[in-house]
């Protein structure tokens, strides 16, 4: 017998491909790209969904909650910015170095941290953000607290800079496809199952031959490298970077909260979370301006509290609940299986 879940996975993939196709043609709709603010919101949704998805590999699938991902995000951003601003080249070598450095830093700091279990790992990652933030602020080579400002440069793929939002829109879409593609691939392969097994029970996983320490380190490395790639987009989009923009607890929390809001450990969760939070964040900021600074965080905080109490599985969990209820109402025969 062939596993019946295979067909369902293929069905899911078709929906994802359709979604990507729709997002790809949206800017071609007359008038859509004219509203620069709307484009900005879409770009940020794609960016934050990718960031949350990168975090989701370690935090959602592997169950190791990290509050330190802004460090890898910052390293990626600085990699590209250093190449462009300090050395005056294309950002590409800096991107590669930044991603590799983020992976390396991730492995080095998490090797001792993974010896801590449960909440202690999360607490240790908090401290790491603080350490890197201070270090980046006083490090003259990378611009210190002032940061790095992009000069006016030619737009295009060489510099990864565009004068219009449409260019960034497609850049963000490619980032989204890469990160979501990697996670989709992991989800269906041995390593993906091993990550979930480590999350659900480390001792059980080990009794089945899973080297849990190696699984966690690898998950951390993949997660950090993809997070660094998101950092690259962030700096190329903002055309400047300083330590507080990237390596802050604020930013670190966003990785965690978007994923949890959407549904940790699911492919759809990070997108669902970003699609709810980012418009909320950007529109409240636009409506209330300086006065309302933080209104989005107040609302977001409330949503998170409600979510954790009512539906810890996030937005994806809500949809699953609804679907199960519909299936149950339709016919009890198929939906429920008797006891043995």
């Amino acid at each position: 017998m062939v596993n019946p879940t295979k067909n369902r996975i293929f069905g899911k993939d078709a929906v994802w491909l359709l979604f990507i196709a729709v997002v790809a043609v949206l800017p071609l709709v007359p008038g859509f790209a004219d509203n620069s603010f709307r484009m900005h919101v879409f770009i940020l949704i794609l960016l934050y969904a990718s960031m949350a998805q990168a975090w989701n590999i370690l935090g959602g699938y592997c169950g190791q909650v990290s509050f330190g991902h802004s460090v890898f995000f910052g390293i990626g951003a600085y990699g590209a910015a250093m190449a462009l601003v300090t050395y005056g080249t294309a950002p590409w070598p800096g991107i590669l170095i930044g991603m590799a450095a983020a992976g390396l830093v991730a492995v080095v700091i998490s090797y001792p941290c993974f010896k801590l279990s449960g909440h202690y790992f999360a607490i240790a990652t908090f401290a790491i953000v603080e350490i890197f933030f201070r270090m980046f602020q006083v490090w003259d080579w990378i611009g210190g607290a002032i940061g790095l400002d992009y000069p006016v440069i030619e737009e295009g793929l060489w510099n990864l800079v565009w004068y219009s939002k449409t260019g960034y829109y497609y850049f963000a879409l490619i980032l989204f496809v890469i990160v979501f593609g990697v996670v989709r691939w992991l989800e269906g392969h041995r390593f993906g199952y091993y990550m979930k097994a480590v999350r659900e029970g480390q001792e059980t996983a080990e009794s089945l031959g899973v080297n849990s320490a190696m699984v966690k380190l690898t998950a951390m490395a993949i997660s950090a490298v993809l997070t660094a790639l998101c950092g690259v987009f962030f700096v190329q989009y903002n055309l400047r970077v300083d330590p507080s923009m990237v390596i802050s607890l604020d930013m670190a929390m966003k990785f965690v909260l978007i994923t949890i809001l959407g549904g940790a450990g699911t492919l759809l969760g990070p997108l669902a979370g970003a699609a709810v939070l980012i418009p909320l964040q950007e529109y409240t900021r636009a409506f209330w301006g300086g006065l309302g600074g933080g209104i989005d965080l107040i609302i977001f905080g409330l949503i998170i509290i409600l979510m954790v109490i009512k539906q810890p599985a996030g937005i994806v969990g809500i949809f699953q609940g609804i679907r199960q209820r519909i299936a149950k109402a339709r016919g009890k025969g198929g939906a429920e299986i008797g006891t043995p």
């Binding site: 979930k196 097994a197 659900e200 029970g201 059980t204």
Partner: peptide, 11 residues
């Protein structure tokens, strides 16, 4: 017993 609770029986 130590089932990996949030995974299906098959997984």
């Amino acid at each position: 017993v130590r089932p990996l609770k949030e995974m299906t029986v098959f997984d």
